[in-house]
Design a protein around this nucleic acid. Structure first.
Lengths: 205, 205
DNA sequence: GATTACTTACCGTCCGTTCAGTAGACTGTA
DNA sequence: TACAGTCTACTGAACGGACGGTAAGTAATC
């Protein structure tokens, strides 16, 4: 049996060996899923990278798909948390939208591999479809913000709100394809640049 | 033996049965690769969708990877053709950049499945790495255009040119994730919107 | 001796690919 | 017109290997 989070035991009961680190397993699994693709990543390779055996993984996780579910849950949880923060719920719509964009960029950078995995989903299994559904709800919440900011007069009204949202988040999400922490661009600078380009464009003002 | 294009014969020699349509095979294969992911698409499913057998496919193509190569070649060829057109080689850098952006959007729409496949590559095999290399060359050509447009004074200079290019093409490439031909937005309108948002931003002018 | 956290060995399935055989269309010769 | 020969374009069955997952046993810790 698995617990609600999918971890099999993990805690420190009284007897037995040292507990191990589920987070480390997830880190390595997520990195491999991103590197090879979920389907192309074998449990054997995963075990090798973890320095254990395949069956050792199955002691803690019920299936390969369970690893995927746990990883996606983390990314989605972090993104959803942005929408719940005060900056996203109070104030002018324009400021709330900018807060959410900045928050999304931060989550993207802080949990880069997890969000990368989320953004590459295809929906081939129940786990993937559920994650896509949660992602769609996030997108809708942002779309509502865009609508409000438009009504408020902060955003241009000559382009469809849905298209605006999609182009906006297309730009944001593409960050996972090239940004690597530790480079010349700090997360805060990146967020500044994204907001600046997204709201004011690349042309000279 | 395969020909240079990877097709095995295809033409009409004198004897034998009706030739068949390689383009149709590629269409179906590309659609399936996009739907399930390349690794997760089995030759059996492909054969089923084509209404033939697995081994019939192997008469025309040497391997599953060959199908991938042919599909990627098509997408890359179309993108590279944009850079060779007159609008991309003569005139002000700003106009050339806008021409290339518009051309890229058009290729994206016209060959949506093929470009989608290209944009989701991971680089797990030689075929994928070669395609990524060609794509990188395309990106570099665009980056040079961005540089020129900046020097010319048409683009803002407060943001790194590389970051600008990436955000610009992040926005453009994200189109494959949501745009579907036949919807309310025509390809030309889409190109207009992309250029407008990319160059002038989503904020009210 | 109870419980945890494994290890080694293995199982059934599916996948990409191959191979032997063959039906159908055409050509060349009589 | 007949029919052997040649070529294309397949079919159906099979193969080796890899993969996700399991079963049974065991060392470490309480």
């Amino acid at each position: 049996m698995t617990s609600a989070t999918g971890e099999r035991r993990g805690g420190n009961g009284r007897a037995g060996r040292d507990p191990y680190d589920l987070a480390a397993v997830l880190d390595i699994a997520t990195a491999a899923f991103n590197e090879f693709g979920y389907e192309a990543t074998s449990m054997g390779v995963l075990a090798e990278r973890l320095g254990t055996s395949k069956s050792a993984i199955y002691y803690h996780v019920t299936s390969k798909e369970d690893l995927l579910r746990l990883a996606l849950d983390r990314a989605l949880g972090e993104l959803e948390r942005v929408l719940e923060q005060e900056g996203a719920t109070t104030g002018k719509a324009d400021a709330r939208l900018r807060f959410v964009v900045r928050g999304a960029v931060r989550v993207l950078v802080d949990d880069l591999p997890y969000v990368t995995l989320l953004l590459r989903l295809r929906g081939n299994s129940a786990v993937e479809r559920e994650a896509l559904e949660r992602r769609r709800e996030f997108d809708h919440a942002v779309a509502r913000l865009v609508d409000e900011a438009r009504d408020e007069g902060s955003l241009r009204a000559d382009i469809d709100a849905r298209t605006t949202t999609r182009l906006l988040f297309g730009m944001i999400n593409s960050i996972v394809e090239w940004y690597r922490p530790g480079g010349p661009l700090t997360p805060d600078q990146l967020a500044d640049d994204v907001i600046s380009v997204a709201f004011d464009g690349v042309a000279r003002a």
